[in-house]
């Protein structure tokens, strides 16, 4: 597999030293080479900022009712309009970012961590452990994902934590499977062989050589999964299985309010839907850019 001329020959992330100047150089290099990715990163950062500081950023309290302004269209004081309880939709979208991004983050981080551990162990040690692990992962992946999530949420009840759990199962299997195949190819590379010949222990090999080499893949997968996790949460909420009200989550705003008032108050459905689409779009663009930038070999994964 050839790398593509003209891209930054980053290869793998430098695992020698994470000195500050290096980080800065990598960042600047990324922004120059991938402006679209950089813009996406800014969009995501802005959303994360808004989510973190929702109470400062948003104009109102997300649960503040205003019976004088029920289902009022977009105005200067309520740019996204108000909902059926007179709550400010913009504020709820901002607070919704909290829930949706948190679910995305939790799913990505936990499935990334678990997937990395399972994938690396299985791929590196191989043999019977590997075969059994792959079998289990395959079994998990064979499950229709959304149906599994629906069954789990039905079983456990709908709360933010349970939604995360339900989405997590399928994601972890996919991440682990991809990491494992990546580890397989890293394991057989010349420098791992060389390191092994010098008498490096398994632990040292794993920590110094194998893991750093799968990190780029993990980052790319993470940013793509982030978007998908938000969509799955949206789908669950759409079916009424998301986090319960009055929690403002984009999926629920779209389904329960957006659908109910589609004809009379379209802003209830349009804004959360747009914001969700933009967020997922940004994560995908960023994932793409990261993939191209970090390791051209990963194209197609």
């Amino acid at each position: 597999m050839t790398s593509i001329e003209g891209t930054t020959p980053a290869g793998a992330l430098p695992y020698g030293g994470w000195r500050e100047w290096r980080v800065r150089r990598v960042l600047i290099g990324f922004v120059r080479a991938r402006p679209l990715g950089a813009v996406s990163a800014c969009v995501i950062l802005a959303m994360a900022f808004a989510a973190l500081f929702a109470s400062v950023v948003s104009p109102y309290d997300p649960n503040l009712k205003n019976t004088a302004l029920l289902l009022d269209g977009p105005t200067l004081s309520h740019p996204f309009g108000t909902d059926q309880l007179g709550r400010d939709v913009l504020t709820r979208v901002i607070y919704g970012a909290r829930i949706t991004l948190f679910i995305g983050l939790a799913v990505t981080a936990v499935s990334g961590g678990l997937g990395l551990a399972i994938g690396v162990t299985s791929g590196y040690f191989g043999g019977r452990v590997d075969r059994i692990t792959v079998m289990l992962l395959d079994a998990m992946m064979a499950f229709p994902g959304l149906i599994l999530a629906i069954a789990l949420v039905t079983a456990l009840g709908s709360s933010v934590l349970n939604v995360i759990l339900a989405v997590l199962v399928g994601f972890t299997a996919r991440v682990a499977r991809l990491i494992r195949s990546n580890v397989l190819s890293v394991r057989s590379t010349a420098y791992v062989d060389a390191a092994r010949a010098t008498g490096a222990t398994n632990v040292r090999l794993l920590v110094r050589h194998v893991v750093p080499n799968v990190v780029p893949l993990l980052i790319v997968l993470g940013s793509l999964n982030f978007g998908v996790a938000m969509l799955v949460e949206g789908s669950l909420s759409f079916l009424g299985l998301g986090p319960p009200p009055p929690t403002p989550s984009w999926g629920r705003m779209l389904s329960s309010e957006g659908q109910q008032f589609f004809r009379s108050a379209p802003w209830l459905g349009i804004f959360p839907g747009l914001v969700l689409a933009v967020a997922v779009f940004a994560f995908n663009l960023l994932g793409d850019a990261l993939r191209d930038h970090l390791d051209p070999r990963l194209r197609g994964s």
């Binding site: 059926q84 079916l239 009424g240 009200p245 329960s256 109910q260």
Partner: peptide
């Protein structure tokens, strides 16, 4: 969401 969409409200 289909039978009593207002129940959440």
């Amino acid at each position: 969401l289909t039978a009593w969409p207002w129940n959440d409200t």
